[in-house]
Amino acid sequence: MIVPVLTGILVLVLGGCACVWWAARGGPRWARAVAVVTLAAGELVRGASRSDRTGGKSGSDD
Rank of each mutant, 00 (worst) to 15 (best):
I2C: 07
I2T: 12
I2G: 13
I2K: 13
P4D: 08
P4C: 03
P4Q: 06
V5G: 02
V5K: 05
L6S: 04
T7W: 12
T7M: 04
T7R: 11
T7N: 08
G8A: 15
I9V: 15
I9Y: 11
I9G: 03
I9L: 15
I9Q: 05
L10A: 15
L10N: 03
L10R: 13
V11R: 06
L12M: 14
L12D: 05
V13T: 07
L14R: 08
L14E: 03
G15S: 14
G15C: 02
G16S: 08
G16M: 02
C17H: 08
A18D: 02
A18L: 13
C19D: 09
C19A: 15
C19K: 02
V20C: 05
V20P: 00
V20S: 00
W21R: 09
W21K: 10
W21G: 01
W21P: 02
W22A: 11
W22P: 00
A23I: 00
A23E: 01
A23R: 00
A24R: 15
A24M: 15
R25I: 07
R25T: 13
R25L: 09
G26K: 06
G26P: 03
G26R: 07
G27W: 04
G27K: 01
P28K: 06
P28G: 04
P28T: 05
W30P: 01
R32S: 10
R32W: 09
R32M: 04
A33D: 08
A33M: 05
V34D: 00
V34R: 03
A35R: 00
A35C: 07
A35N: 10
A35F: 02
A35D: 01
A35Y: 03
A35E: 00
V36W: 06
V36K: 05
V36T: 08
V37R: 02
T38G: 03
L39T: 00
A41I: 11
A41C: 13
G42I: 06
G42V: 00
E43D: 09
L44R: 01
V45W: 10
V45Y: 11
V45N: 05
V45Q: 06
R46M: 12
R46E: 11
R46W: 14
G47A: 14
A48K: 07
A48L: 14
A48P: 02
S49E: 09
S49I: 12
R50T: 13
R50H: 13
R50N: 06
S51D: 10
D52N: 08
D52Y: 11
R53H: 13
T54L: 10
T54M: 04
T54K: 08
K57R: 12
K57N: 02
S58F: 12
S58P: 06
S58L: 15
S58E: 14
S58M: 08
G59C: 05
S60A: 14
S60D: 09
S60W: 03
S60V: 07
D61A: 12
D61Q: 11
D62T: 10
D62Q: 12
D62Y: 09
D62S: 06
